[in-house]
Design a protein around this nucleic acid. Sequence first.
DNA 1: AACCTGACTACTC
DNA 2: TGAGTAGCCAGGT
Length: 109
Amino acid sequence: MKMETLNFFDKVYEVAKQIPYGKVTSYGAIAKYLGASRSARMVGYAMNGSVGKDVPAHRVVNRKGLLTGKHHFDGTNLMQQLLESEGIEVKDNQIQNFEKVFWDPSKAI
DNA sequence: AACCTGACTACTC
DNA sequence: TGAGTAGCCAGGT
């Protein structure tokens, strides 16, 4: 782990933590906000280490609102249930009304 | 050092 | 409109 990587991770966590209840955002949005628009994959990778960081990783999905990372959670439908408990409609691993619940970090911060 | 993989995106057909 | 391809960065083998 390099410092820069940790710094990047930290920023990702910082942004993710500020996602309001009932809202979601995309990896690319976070990456873009951090000035690393080409490293959306790294954002997803960062979420992989979000355990124990108080990061609501379930509120971060790909740009289509698809729960591509659900299998990284405990169980198979935990991520979906967490989202649904926040009032977000999720069907077939995809967030419904994605545009309505989308939270843009560059606008909020 | 080369190649593969992955919680992604954008462009093309 | 939907599926396929290419580009992307970092880490593992």
